[in-house]
Computed example of a mutant assay.
Amino acid sequence: MTTARWPELLRGREGELLLDLVYVFALTRLSQRLIEDFTTDRRIVLPEAGQTALLLLALWLVWIHAAWVTSCFDPRQPAIQLMVVWVMFGSMIMAVALPHAFGPRGLVFAVTYVAIQCGKPLFLLLASPHERHNPARTLSWAAVSAVPWLAGAALFPQSPARGVLWTLAIALDYTGLALGWPIPGLGRTRMKEWMIAGEHLAERYQQFIIITLGETILLTGLTFATEFTPDRVLPTVVSFASTVLLWRIYFHRAGIVLPAVLEAAPRPARLGQSGTYTHLVMVTGILTTGVGHALVIDQPLERDPTWLAVIFGGPALFLAGRSRLEYDVFARVSASRVVGLLALAALTPAMLRLPPTIPASTAAIVLAGVAVRDAIREWKHPREEPSPPP
Rank of each mutant, 00 (worst) to 15 (best):
D328A: 03
E203N: 11
P135V: 01
P259V: 03
L124G: 02
W141M: 03
L287E: 07
P315V: 09
E131Q: 14
A363E: 09
H293S: 12
Y327Q: 14
S274M: 11
P184M: 07
L21W: 00
P266K: 05
I297L: 00
L165V: 05
W379H: 15
C72A: 12
L245E: 06
M191H: 07
Y327D: 07
A146R: 13
T226N: 11
P355W: 08
A202L: 02
I44E: 11
F38H: 00
F123R: 09
A343Y: 01
G103L: 15
S145M: 13
V164C: 06
R29P: 02
E203C: 05
A153M: 07
L150G: 04
L342N: 02
A368V: 09
I80R: 07
V24R: 10
P386H: 04
E199N: 10
A151H: 08
S361H: 13
H293N: 12
A364R: 14
L301G: 09
I249Q: 08
L27F: 10
V111F: 02
T289D: 03
A110T: 06
D41Q: 15
G275N: 08
A143T: 07
P305L: 02
I365G: 01
T212G: 14
A350F: 10
A169M: 11
M83S: 06
T306F: 05
Y174E: 05
V338L: 10
S145K: 11
G272K: 14
F312T: 14
T167C: 13
H100Y: 09
I35G: 00
V108R: 14
R43A: 04
A101H: 09
T212P: 15
P388M: 02
P157D: 10
A371F: 01
P359L: 05
V147T: 05
T167E: 10
A67G: 00
L301H: 15
W149S: 03
G221D: 01
H381S: 12
R5M: 13
A360F: 11
A331L: 13
R42Q: 12
E215D: 13
S140Q: 09
T288V: 05
F240D: 04
V339Y: 00
I358A: 10
V111M: 12
T70K: 11
I35F: 00
V84E: 03
P104L: 09
K380H: 15
L219G: 01
R5I: 09
L172T: 04
E302C: 06
M1P: 14
V283L: 15
G15T: 13
P148S: 02
V45W: 04
I196C: 00
G119W: 05
R353C: 04
V257A: 00
A169G: 07
V257C: 01
G292W: 01
V310F: 08
G163K: 13
Q32A: 04
Q81T: 01
L168D: 07
D74F: 03
T362N: 10
A97F: 01
T362I: 15
R162A: 05
A346I: 08
E215H: 12
W63N: 03
L347Q: 05
L139F: 02
V45E: 08
M83I: 03
